[in-house]
Design a protein around this nucleic acid. Structure first.
Lengths: 210, 210
DNA sequence: CTTGACATTGGACCAAAGTCCAATTGACGT
DNA sequence: ACGTCAATTGGACTTTGGTCCAATGTCAAG
């Protein structure tokens, strides 16, 4: 199962022989791989959240462990799928890794076919994450382009409030609410109230009933 | 940290000495525990989705393994948090368990304090699941109380269609759509369009733009 | 056959939302 | 001081949505 491109594989392992072995395997599936010998080296590559890819990660490395690197990768908001590949691991480690969102956790030596399947899943997951994240940032940008008043109106309208209720809560005229509201619709690129509500949910705007 | 009641702990292990040990530990936290010696015995208890609780589960048991039981528990739609506790486990097992949604995976002997913290998390998770599930079923019931026509109107309205558009799509008068629509609002107990949209999303009604 | 649920529509209105055009007031930066 | 942007409001409508009451036709179950 050859995987299309625009998907990158990052190999992070301090053992050159493992690097080569993984690299060969990855290439045999028609994928490019970038190789890093340490966690910090990988982090310095500063992968954009727009990149779909997966990280083949060794748990035991000097300086920063794979588990720590995973946390840092998550913190930085990349959208890569993380697959641990390791020689000497224990249960708590693997549990923490998977609980931390790792796609899988393989022990060496591993079956090449297994890795192939996992990479296939990684493609699907990472691409989905990239797409969702991209959409979320678009929505967030639009939201930030709203003036603070428009944001208030947005929130209240998304809670299902009538224009007159919004007006009362904000102490302004209903007419003014209409103006803000229509600007909100335009700036958020929503072409129906249903749309707007879904955008509000994506932004996790607080939904209060009061 | 004593945990309030209306939370049940299920111990599933074929070793009586382990059963007793876990039971003591659980009771010391002010919680009742029900003890089962096998997976099938536990399944025959047929736990309702309304029960908040956690299962302390041994992986290695005759007949049905803990992992298999986990799958069955999930399939049956209970809302219990699952915690594996085991003596002889391996990495693939723990990975599969956590990927399958287990809250945690402990090796014997385990630190009692660790289990206490885990049970605390289990309380939070299971209660949340129960609440969410309860709400979802309420919404599903309401949805099923709609006539098929009302369901169609619901779907289209939740997509942001105007009454006149819905009318055109269904080949009926706009007036009729209004009637269905107001019945939908009443039956779904939605008091605003925003509400209705969120209910549609909970039900995962298909959102088509055509 | 009768009853009841469901789908449909009309008329008459009222309420809510959306649209143009126009205008005033403040704050902020150049 | 000038220009721009944000916030505000009015007037005048048009469009949509929602409600009440009433009525007709279908179809299946009792």
């Amino acid at each position: 199962m050859p995987i299309e491109s625009n998907f990158e594989v990052f190999i992070v392992d301090d053992d050159p022989s493992i690097q080569r072995a993984l690299n060969r395997l990855v290439r045999s599936h028609g994928l490019r791989a970038r190789i890093f010998s340490s966690a910090v080296e990988f982090l310095s590559a500063d992968i954009s959240p727009d990149v779909a890819g997966c990280v083949l990660l060794d748990v035991e490395m000097p300086e920063m462990s794979g588990i720590d690197l995973q946390a840092e990768i998550r913190r930085r908001g990349t959208n890569l799928a993380i697959v641990f590949i390791t020689g000497h691991a224990n249960i708590p480690m693997s549990v923490q890794a998977v609980k931390g969102g790792a796609l899988d956790f393989l022990e060496k030596p591993f079956d090449p076919g297994t890795l192939a399947k996992i990479i296939h899943n990684a493609v699907a997951r990472s691409r989905r994450l990239v797409a969702e994240n991209h959409e979320l940032r678009r929505v967030q940008n639009d939201f930030e382009s709203l003036t603070s008043r428009e944001q208030e109106v947005f929130r209240l309208v998304a809670c299902g409030r009538l224009n007159k209720e919004v007006a009362f809560k904000l102490g302004i005229a209903e007419k003014t609410v209409k103006v803000h509201r229509s600007r909100v619709m335009a700036k958020m690129k929503a072409d129906s109230l249903a749309d707007l509500v879904r955008l509000a949910d994506k932004l996790k705007l607080p939904i209060s009933t009061d």
